[in-house]
């Protein structure tokens, strides 16, 4: 679970918007500062890894039984695993499942959460209280035990399935803050004017309220993305989910099962998937404040 704060928004408002230039806004914002540029490049590399990584290796990774739990060497840059397979190859092959399902889950969480939040914030009455009771219910259920129970019922074999289940169970923490923002926006002058003009609800919700919560939505998209990476690798790590192919969570599981925790030489095997997860986390954290500049029209020139 990730708790979003309005931190980024509070801190960066004093930045004066750069003068309009021919360079597209996205590129200006993402590459405007060195830390952001580095974070963006690393995240793009991970995306590239997810696309072409699995194509670089055959379906069954070649194993080297002579070298089990070997440390990093010229031949195996990140060492080898319990069976002697190359860890770097496993990282590359395993990235696709993790990143694809996290993207699916993140988009789904944010889409459902935003829709529920906006609708229950705009409409009063039965729709609102019904949706909020469902939201409270979803927030109350402990998500990890719930996912473990659900994993016994549905098989999480494909990234699509994993993403769908994470998305369907994880949207509630976005819906609540979006609703309270929508509630407070509702009383503002421009929305009263829009309602007074008799604009349809659809227009008010999507054209008037949504742009105002867009920075928060974008920030939550990033947070949901990393949250989904944690949730799924955690499930695999616990061994709660049966697996057929490799991914970072499965690697962690196999490292622990294979005794990597007791063998100092296996540290590279254990650290490689963890390092990838933490690197993605760090990059996302560095990019969080960029969402405000990207989606908040007031900060633009």
């Amino acid at each position: 679970m990730v708790i979003a704060t309005a931190d980024a928004i509070v801190d960066e408002t004093e930045i004066v918007a750069p003068p309009a230039s021919r360079v597209p806004l996205v590129i200006r914002v993402l590459f405007g500062r060195p830390t952001r540029a580095v974070a963006t490049v690393i995240l793009l590399l991970f995306a590239l890894m997810a696309i072409i990584g699995p194509m670089l290796y055959p379906n069954n990774l070649r194993v080297d039984p002579e070298h089990i739990f070997a440390g990093p060497s010229a031949k195996h840059w990140l060492g080898t695993d319990y069976a002697g397979a190359d860890v770097l190859a496993e990282i590359l092959v395993g990235s696709r499942y993790v990143i694809t399902s996290a993207i699916i889950a993140g988009i789904l969480m944010v889409a459902i959460g935003t829709a529920v939040g906006l609708i229950s914030g705009y409409y009063r009455g039965v729709a609102e209280s019904g949706l909020m009771r469902i939201t409270d219910f979803m927030l109350t259920l402990p998500s990890l035990p719930l996912l473990i129970v659900l994993s016994q019922k549905w098989k999480f074999g494909s990234p699509l399935m994993m993403g769908l289940i994470l998305g369907i169970t994880g949207w509630a923490f976005i819906a609540r803050p979006i609703r309270s923002q929508a509630l407070s926006l509702r009383e503002r002058g421009f929305l009263e004017a829009a309602r007074g003009l008799g604009l349809p609800a659809r227009h008010v919700i999507w054209r008037e309220i949504l742009p105002n919560v867009a920075p928060f939505v974008a920030m939550n998209l990033l947070l949901s993305f990393i949250g989904s990476i944690y949730a799924q690798t955690g499930l695999f790590f616990l061994g709660a989910v049966p697996y057929s192919s490799t991914n970072w969570g499965v690697m962690l599981r196999q490292a622990v099962e294979g005794g990597a925790l007791q063998a100092s030489s296996a540290i590279a095997y254990l650290l490689a998937p963890m390092g990838c997860i933490m690197l993605i986390n760090l990059c996302v954290v560095l990019l969080l404040d960029a969402t405000d500049e990207l989606f908040n029209p007031r900060l633009r020139g």
Binding site: V2, I3, T233
Partner: peptide, 20 residues
């Protein structure tokens, strides 16, 4: 930044690293 980063690290990674 340290708060955001630490907040972001999943519990199982922290626990496994401490253990190791």
């Amino acid at each position: 930044l340290s708060g955001s980063f630490l907040h972001g690290i999943p519990t199982f990674i922290t626990a496994t690293l401490l253990f190791f």
